[in-house]
Each structure stands twice: as structure tokens, then as C-alpha cells.
């Protein structure tokens, strides 16, 4: 890979007078692909990083009832923690109801977040199939997919979230 772009950014930073006066002692140890695979559990919006496995809403309902409903309500209506279902049409209102169905722009975010941080008290206990099934259940409860639609690495990245086009980026990155 070439690094000319980085040089450009560095030069810009130096002109701005903010940056890199130092040079490091190069003490990093090259990571193996096995180490990286174990650590890298983030999922990109194009599906990058999604693992093998699959699930359906039909399978996810029972998992949700057992592991999620205590905090999010039997139907994802929100009890002691966030509401996950409904709220469509409220985003321009003074009290928007931001749920997966009404607000979230990418379905991949559901899998990523559920697998990394849920259930709240016991994160990193779900299998990939369970995370897929829960993702399918939440999409189905929001009327986005059917009860028996299979969610896997390929289909999840292709789910069109209803509110996707109502975001504008302000980062200025091309």
C-alpha cells in the first residue's frame, strides 16, 4: 500500500503548526491475522466483518423474551431501558421517538451492538446465530422484514432501513 495521502495530511498538519514534532521508537509488535480476527468484531455498514451464521425472527422471539424483554419490554416497547420498536413518523416532532424502526439508518448496527454490548449484564455471551436471530426479530417487530426471512451476512447488509435517507453528514470527509 502506498502512503502518499498520509504524507499530504502530515504536511497540512505541520503547516497548521499543530503536529508531529516527535518520532516514535517503533515498539509495536506486528499483530497476527489470528489476533486481529479475534479482536476485530466491528461491523461496517456494507456488512464488512459479518460472521458466518444466520437467524430468523421466528427464532429470535424466544431469545428476546428470555434475554431482552426484562429491560426493553415484551414487544420492544421500552420499559426500564430504550424503546426499540415503533415511533415511525415522529422524527420531525418536538419529542421524537427514536427507535430502530423509526431512526436507525443501518441494520448492520443492530448486529454489531447486540453482539458487543448486549445483554447489558452479560455481554459477549450470545452466539453469532443468536445475534442474527435477535437482529431479525427487531427488524420484524419494526415491520421491515418477514417472520421467516433469513438474516445472514449477505441479507443483513442489504436490508433497507426506512429512515436511511434522512441523515446528512457534517464531517466533511470525502
Amino acid at each position: 500500500m502506498c502512503s502518499y495521502k498520509l504524507s499530504t495530511i502530515l504536511a497540512t498538519a505541520l503547516v497548521a503548526g499543530t503536529a508531529l514534532a516527535q518520532r516514535g521508537p517503533d515498539l509495536g509488535v506486528v499483530a497476527t491475522s489470528e489476533q486481529i480476527a479475534e479482536w476485530d468484531r466491528s461491523i461496517g455498514p456494507d456488512g464488512t466483518g459479518l460472521p458466518e451464521g444466520s437467524g430468523t425472527a421466528a427464532a429470535g422471539a424466544a431469545i428476546f423474551a428470555a434475554k431482552c424483554a426484562a429491560c426493553h419490554g415484551v414487544d420492544g416497547e421500552g420499559t426500564i431501558n430504550d424503546r426499540l420498536v415503533g415511533g415511525q413518523g415522529t422524527i420531525g416532532a418536538e419529542r421524537p421517538i427514536k427507535t430502530i424502526g423509526s431512526y436507525w439508518p443501518y441494520a448492520t448496527t443492530i448486529f454489531d451492538y447486540v453482539r458487543r454490548a448486549m445483554p447489558y449484564l452479560t455481554p459477549h455471551t450470545l452466539t453469532d446465530d443468536e445475534a442474527y436471530a435477535l437482529t431479525a426479530h427487531l427488524l420484524h417487530e419494526n415491520g421491515i422484514i418477514g417472520l421467516d426471512d433469513v438474516i445472514d451476512a449477505e441479507s443483513l447488509a442489504n436490508v433497507a432501513m426506512p429512515n436511511r435517507d434522512n441523515f446528512v453528514r457534517r464531517d466533511g470527509v470525502d
Partner: peptide, 20 residues
């Protein structure tokens, strides 16, 4: 990466329904 916090949380909905 479009993480949970930068999509569902730390975004700014406008009156026209568009979120920044």
C-alpha cells in the same frame, strides 16, 4: 463504521425530520 452511538444517539434531528 456507523456505530450505535454515532447513528442512534449522537446525531441531531432537525425540525424537517433530517438528522445531522
Amino acid at each position: 463504521t456507523m456505530t450505535k452511538d454515532e447513528t442512534s444517539k449522537y446525531t441531531d434531528p432537525r425540525p424537517d425530520g433530517v438528522a445531522e
